[in-house]
C-alpha cells in the first residue's frame, strides 16, 4: 500500500517535471487559432472540473449525438450574465464524449478586446465568431460550438429566463450548409440561475461601452463575494443531429432555407429547455 502510493507519487512528480520542462522550453505547439491542447487538458479543464462536478453537478445527456469524428456544429442557448455556460459545455464534451473531443467555441469580439480573457480564450480553443473562422474550423473537421443569442442571451434579465432570444441572422446555419456539417442542438438548463440579473445599469454600460452592467442579488452589494455563482443544478442535453447535406447548391445564400433551419434549431432547443426544466424541478435541488 505504502509502496504503491510512493511510486504513484514519484510517477506523478516525474510527469509534472516533464510537463514543466516542456512548457519552460517552449516544446509545445499551438494551431492556427492559438489553441494549445496540452495547456487546455493539463491546466484549464482541471481548473473548471470542481465547478462542473461539485458546484453545478452537471448532468449530460445525448453525448452520443456528437459524432465521433469529423465536423459538426453545436448550437446552444446562452445565459447566465457571465458566459460560464460555454466553458461548462466545452468541459462536458471533453469529459463525457468517448473520444474526448475539444469543442471549439466561437466567442464575441469583446472577448478578444480584453487582455487575459482573449489569451485564455484562444489557448482553450476559442476563436472569433466570424464566417471565415467557422468555415476554416469546420473545413478541417473540428467540432465547433456557437451561442447565436450572443449578448442578448447572456445579458437578459432573470425574468426572461429560458426564453430564447433572436438567433442573429442565421450565419451559423449558412456556415454549416457550406461545410455540409450536421447541426447538433444543445440545451443548457441551470446557467440562468448562477447570476440572476435583476437589473441592468444601462447608463453605466453605455459609459463603459459594455453590452450590459448587471445587478444581481449579490453583485455589486457583496463586492468580490458577489462574483461567486449560485450553485444551481445544471443539465446539458445534446439533441439529434440535423443534417445539412442534401440541400441544393446555393442553399447557403438562400434566406428561406436559412430561416427555416434556424427556426427548426431554435424550436428544438426551446422545447428541450421546457422539458428539462420540468424534469429538474427546483433550481438548486
Amino acid at each position: 500500500m505504502g509502496e504503491g502510493a510512493g511510486s504513484d507519487a514519484s510517477e506523478g512528480l516525474d510527469r509534472l517535471l516533464t510537463f514543466l520542462k516542456r512548457r519552460l522550453n517552449g516544446d509545445f505547439s499551438v494551431d492556427a487559432f492559438g489553441f494549445d491542447p496540452e495547456l487546455t487538458e493539463a491546466v484549464m479543464l482541471p481548473a473548471l472540473r470542481p465547478l462542473y462536478r461539485h458546484w453545478f453537478r452537471v448532468e449530460v445527456r445525448g453525448i452520443e449525438n456528437i459524432p465521433a469524428s469529423g465536423a459538426a456544429l453545436v448550437v446552444a442557448n446562452h445565459s447566465g450574465t457571465v458566459p460560464v455556460d460555454s466553458l461548462m459545455t466545452q468541459l462536458a464534451v471533453h469529459d463525457e464524449h468517448p473520444t474526448h473531443r475539444h469543442l471549439r467555441a466561437l466567442a464575441a469580439d469583446l472577448v478578444f478586446q480584453l487582455p487575459v480573457v482573449s489569451d485564455l480564450a484562444r489557448k482553450s480553443g476559442s476563436t472569433l465568431a466570424c464566417t471565415e473562422d467557422v468555415e476554416k474550423l469546420l473545413g478541417s473537421g473540428e467540432l465547433v460550438g456557437v451561442w447565436p443569442e450572443g449578448f442578448k442571451g447572456v445579458g437578459k434579465l432573470y425574468s426572461e429566463r429560458y426564453k430564447l432570444q433572436r438567433f442573429g441572422r442565421g450565419g451559423f446555419v449558412s456556415a454549416a450548409l457550406r461545410s455540409s456539417a450536421p447541426i447538433v442542438p444543445c440545451s443548457i438548463v441551470g446557467a440562468e440561475e448562477i447570476y440572476p440579473m435583476i437589473a441592468n445599469l444601462d447608463f453605466l454600460a453605455r459609459l463603459l461601452r459594455l453590452p450590459y452592467v448587471p445587478v444581481t442579488p449579490t453583485f455589486p452589494w457583496l463586492g468580490l463575494l458577489g462574483l461567486v455563482p449560485l450553485p444551481s443544478k445544471w443539465m446539458i442535453e445534446f439533441g439529434k443531429p440535423i443534417t445539412t447535406d442534401g440541400y441544393p447548391d446555393g442553399a447557403a445564400e438562400d434566406p428561406m432555407v436559412i430561416f427555416e433551419l434556424t427556426d427548426h434549431v431554435r424550436d428544438t432547443i426551446q422545447n428541450t429547455l421546457h422539458r428539462l426544466l420540468e424534469e429538474r424541478g427546483g433550481a438548486f435541488g
Partner: peptide, 10 residues
C-alpha cells in the same frame, strides 16, 4: 526527487 522517493520502486 529520486532520493526523496527512495522508499518507492520508481
Amino acid at each position: 526527487a529520486g532520493l526523496a522517493g527512495a522508499f518507492g520502486p520508481g
